[in-house]
Amino acid sequence: MTAPETRGIQITNFRKLYGKTEAVKEVSLSVERGELFGLIGPDGAGKTTLMRAVCTLLVPDGGTVLVQGRDAARDIAAVRARLGYMPQRFSLYQDLTVEQNLRFFADLFQVRQKEREGRLEELYRFSRLGPFKKRRAGALSGGMRQKLALSCALVHTPETLVLDEPTTGVDPVSRHEFWEILRAIQKEGTTILVSTAYLDEADRCDRVALMHEGRIVAVGTPEEIKAGFRHVLYRLAGRDARELRRFFSGLPQVHSTQLFGDAVHVVFAKKPGQSDWEEWRHALEGKLEHWSPERPSVEDVFLELIGSGR
């Protein structure tokens, strides 16, 4: 057992209520120091509440949150001084330039003069915002604004970085770039807790927690999560995907089906045998042309965990 003070973030039996609504229900979670950890789940899963607790911004209705060994509900000033937070709706000064925004945040966080210039250079390098120093924040594209907000959260070289859905609404190329930047920051030794509603982004993290309706439904590396899929997924193709789907969704051993373009994903309770396939091909009069096992995605696992079968 690792001593708590060497932990990055230690959450024990955390609960939070908003009125009668239990936003987070008895959640426990450890993030190792230096880990890139993802909180993944749809809107309303409780990700933001959990992150705000880590950032000292709310008082738990039960349980404790330790950040680098310090209690986020009591030792507020010490936790904040070592933590960078990029909320979902961050505020940049639209009429200040990239550089002015960074310097403003450096003042706020009392970054010492002799460290400041070196840190700014590092941040320009990370974020690739160097060529845009003189551009007003209001004139940046979505992806660049996101990178500037990240840089502002990093200006005081925090030990822990918390990011609430930083890639929501950002185009796929910028999303990719953003994750590369997070990896580079992690190499500095920073512990990163990041949330996302895009389930495919789980693969970008060292470990993830899948959240649903205020609970954690799975924790592990992306590979561990995917290995936890209890059913068997096949990808089928043929002349009439809709017909294939109708046929398979009527079989008792089929858990669920989904159309993907011209292909159908079929989730079976257990692996079908060769004779099953021959029988189905026969029954479908040649409409079934290809079938092959498909690796389940994190989304498939998530849907299985929350019990969404049809």
């Binding site: 749809p42 809107d43 309303g44 929501t168 609404g169 509603a197 895009y198 389930l199 989904q258 159309l259 989304e299 998530f302 849907l303 929350i306 969404s308």
Partner: peptide, 14 residues
């Protein structure tokens, strides 16, 4: 359907 929950998204695409 950007950013909605995966169950709702799959139902929508159905």
């Amino acid at each position: 359907t950007s950013g909605v929950d995966p169950r709702a998204r799959r139902e929508f695409w159905d």
